[in-house]
Design a protein around this nucleic acid. Structure first.
Length: 502
RNA sequence: GGGCCUGUAGCUCCAAUGGCAGAGCAGCGGACUUUUAAUCCGAAGUGUGUGGGUUCGAAUCCCACCAGGCCCA
């Protein structure tokens, strides 16, 4: 890298010494160290939100007589001569410190005035309200738990720069309430997902990330190398084939919430590493799984927003099921205004595709044409939750053929707000059919199709032992979090999104 | 990969046509016994992403590079 500007946040004693903004903080830090150092722990009795919950309705000027300890980051101080106010922020919220020279004593008061915004502070005192009614702790003593050597971002505008917020997420979390709320919402959504599957009798499992071959989806993998084995290896691009092996093994209902890696571009909806939930349930079909999806999505929405009617990017959405269902072919027919089907001639389909600005590949069958037309004409137009069903066999190499219709599978994708949120199907469990599908994929690949699945021989062996009828599901967890937190960009729901190294 | 755009103080932002680089917050000193982005007074300070080029003179124009954003593929 030729750009060798000194990093503004790189740790350097010299830099801290030279910068007038940090020099005083460093002096105070060293004074504490020389005086015995910072505490190793602090005994907190209450969080900010616990105090607000317990004393939310006090009259202005109340004194509870209740002594508590609180701890958090000091965000701001307001000095008033013989009084001072501090704002302490912990993970649950904020609580005001009320500092009265008569209560804390002259020494304590002067020490409090030495604190800087950003310092970690523990304080003990009485729960009161100020004359304006602000719930406060009128402190008797306090302890500087750790000095902050760096100034905080603007206390009103926070930290706005997208790059700085992503690279230095800790600063973003300190300064921006919204970022904290989103991080907590993500945690709650993942907890709720676990709860939903656990209570349905699913077993949470972990399957390998590091593989000899990346199978189960269409995506470029990250490559790595195992030194002791002397083998090139790949990071997983899906968990699908391993989870179905477990159903073969008799675990019957399994799910995994795991990190998936795809060596592809970064944009508003894609991060190279992202979180996917996959589940497989023996004796269920795609219809059962659609119902499951409706219930799980609605449950997560209620957990986060308190209801199923949400606003996403300024538009209303209703997430309670059942969601309307429409076949991919019917949606495409409606969009193009031509009564095509999977037996239509490839020449006619190619003309139709070109008419809509799609340049077909030579190896496309009717299924690929329908998919391309769907992507081009329909996908963006779906706003309310909708199950798109019956994807063509050609583009669904792991889905079971439809029980009564030719050319298509028992598959669905859930679209909301123009984006895909879930994908599921009745799982293909016929080992012969699966082998043919894999071989068709291999043929397509050697014919120049980049988007073709690799063959997984051990998976075929597993199918020969017998996969019961099974319904499977994949859900993009990051996107679900985006939906429920009204975020446009995936980096807003991933604490440390992938970035070019600085 | 293509197009457009951005990068100025710790943070948020100004700086017509090229002409002494500014403010608010933060920080520093002071006043203030109920503040809520406290307020008031005072002093000071620091910066044009990196490297070149054009020019008497560049934050501004040109080139390359670095990082990022938006849109498209």
């Amino acid at each position: 890298m030729t750009d060798d500007r000194p990093s503004d946040l790189a740790p350097s004693t010299d830099a801290l010494e030279d910068d007038p903004l940090t020099k005083e903080r460093l002096r105070k830090y060293r004074a504490v160290v020389e005086d015995g150092g910072f505490p190793y722990a602090y005994d907190r009795t209450d969080t900010a939100s616990e105090l607000h919950a317990r004393h939310g309705n006090l009259e202005p000027g109340s004194e509870t007589g209740e002594t508590v300890t609180v701890a958090g980051r000091l965000m701001n101080t307001r000095e008033m001569g013989k009084l001072a106010f501090g704002v302490l922020q912990d993970v649950t919220g904020r609580i005001q410190l009320f500092v009265d020279r008569r209560t804390i004593g002259d020494d304590g008061f002067d020490e409090f005035l030495e604190l800087d915004a950003g310092d970690w502070v523990g304080a003990e005192g009485e729960v009161i309200t100020s004359k304006r009614g602000e719930l406060s702790v009128r402190i008797h003593t306090f302890s500087l738990l750790q000095k902050s050597l760096r100034p905080l971002p603007d206390k009103w505008h926070g930290l706005k720069d997208v790059e700085a917020r992503s690279r230095h997420r800790y600063v973003d979390l300190i300064a921006n309430e919204e970022s904290r709320t989103t991080a907590l919402a993500r945690s709650r959504i993942i907890s709720e997902l676990r709860r939903q599957f656990d209570q349905r009798g699913y077993i949470e499992v972990e399957t390998p990330v590091l593989l000899g071959e990346a199978t189960g989806a269409l995506a470029r993998p990250f490559e790595t190398h195992h030194n002791a084995l002397g083998e090139d290896m790949y990071l997983r691009i899906a968990t699908e084939l391993f989870l179905k092996r477990l159903v073969v093994g008799g675990l019957e209902k399994v799910y995994e919430i795991g990190r998936i890696f795809r060596n592809e571009g970064i944009d508003a909806k894609h991060n190279p590493e992202f979180t996917m939930l996959e589940s497989y349930e023996a004796f269920a079909d795609f219809d059962d799984i659609m119902t499951l999806v409706e219930e799980v999505v609605a449950a997560c929405a209620e957990k986060i927003t308190g209801g199923t009617a949400i606003t996403y990017q300024g538009r209303d959405l209703e997430l309670s099921g059942p969601y309307p269902r429409a076949t991919m072919l019917d949606l495409v027919r409606k969009a193009v205004g031509v009564d095509i089907d999977y037996d239509s001639s490839l020449d006619d389909l190619a003309d139709l595709a070109r008419h809509h600005g799609i340049e077909p590949d030579d190896h496309w069958g009717s299924g690929r044409f329908v998919e391309a037309l769907f992507d081009e004409l329909v996908e963006d137009t779906i706003w309310q939750p909708t199950f798109v069903t019956e994807h063509p066999i050609e583009i669904s190499p792991l889905s079971r053929a439809h029980r009564s219709k030719p050319h298509v599978t028992e598959r669905f994708e859930l679209f909301i707000g123009g984006a895909e949120y879930a994908n599921g199907f009745s799982e293909l469990n016929d080992p012969f059919d699966q082998r043919e599908r894999f071989e068709a994929q291999a043929a397509a690949k050697s014919a120049g199709d980049q988007d073709a699945h690799p063959i997984d021989d051990d998976y075929l062996l597993a199918l020969e032992y017998g996969l019961p009828p099974t319904g499977g599901l994949g859900v993009g967890v990051d996107r679900l979090v985006m939906l429920l937190t009204d975020k446009h960009h995936i980096r807003e729901v991933i604490l440390f999104p992938t970035m070019r190294p600085e």
